[in-house]
Design a protein around this nucleic acid. Sequence first.
DNA 1: GTGCCTATTTATAAGTC
DNA 2: TGACTTATAAATAGGCA
Lengths: 84, 84
Amino acid sequence: MGRKIEMKKIEEMTKRQVIFSKRRSSLLKKAAEIAICCDVDMLFVAFSPAARLGKFCSKKRIEDILQRYVKFPIERRLTSINFS
Amino acid sequence: MGRKIEMKKIEEMTKRQVIFSKRRSSLLKKAAEIAICCDVDMLFVAFSPAARLGKFCSKKRIEDILQRYVKFPIERRLTSINFS
DNA sequence: GTGCCTATTTATAAGTC
DNA sequence: TGACTTATAAATAGGCA
């Protein structure tokens, strides 16, 4: 899509962030479509090098599983993220 | 992409499974590209209605986090999945 | 950092075998 | 079930405002 790019880390930070932002939203959109059309629950997380989280695409079952089984350190981080 | 479809659950099971299989692999491919080009770790999980897991797109940090913080019931399920 | 534009590249629904 | 093919629709890299 668009002009082709190499499959390697984009070294220019600004460019890398712009590309990430754009592609992440497309990926989430796709994940949401698949979740609905194919009747599956989808979980998606992106960790930046600074260890911050990206976003979720999720539904009920995954929220339940996370609340039930995931210990506090990761749970605390996960709950700061928007579900969509 | 392709002929347009409605944003709702595909009722025909066979068709739904075929579509899911195709779109899941595309989504994983995209996630892998983003992970490399944008230097992020990506985690992706799909739960079917039968509660079986789909697949992962993951890297080192996420594997570490899962091993360190996720309790056994979910961990046991996660470890049966391929990382790619 | 945001938000559109668009030429180009990908994804993919349907179909066939 | 999978592996192709193809017409169509979506994603997107690079620009530009």
